[in-house]
Amino acid sequence: MSFGGKLKGNTQSPPRVSLEEMAWSWLGSFLGIGAVAGLNHLYFAGTPWTLIVGSFGASASLIYGAIKSPLAQPRNFVGGQVLSALVGVSAQMALPGQAWLAAPLAVAFAVVVMHATKTLHPPGGATALIAVAGGPQVHDLGYLYALLPVGAGALLMLAIALVVNNLPAKRRYPEFWL
């Protein structure tokens, strides 16, 4: 197929989901992010630690909004988040002060590592990028970043997903664990 032909696309967008589906996606996202934000507020305000990382917002779209997606399954969500955090911290430590190079390396390697481990989870790329571009507060955490906020926050959001996504009769989560 020619390059121009490929750019045209060859199929159509999947259908819009029902209002009921949207409502459950809203509730899961609200409770999931609410849990990490609330606990962060209670226990980590004014400390060097945090329970929140920006890429959790992206993860919420998947684990509460596209719960059948392979990208949203526990293996991908927790595995992709934690492995990408480790890759991001490694890039930051290998090239301190060289964010222009550490950032693309962090994301590119995060994507490859997630592919290789069958844990592809798009927000993981953001998690790796934040490890480099997140400023001194993130840099100071070192590899702890992969456990707190990333690992702990992911497990908390997963627990919410396991409850909320299984409340309605028509929803089921996960599709698989490992």
Binding site: P14, V17, I67
Partner: peptide, 24 residues
């Protein structure tokens, strides 16, 4: 046809992250 697939996808509740073309 893609229309058949779209209809089936609508029948299942929830978001499937596959295009009708890929499914076919």
């Amino acid at each position: 046809s893609e229309q058949d697939i779209l209809k089936a996808m609508k029948g299942l509740s929830g978001y499937l992250d596959i295009t009708p073309g890929d499914f076919k």
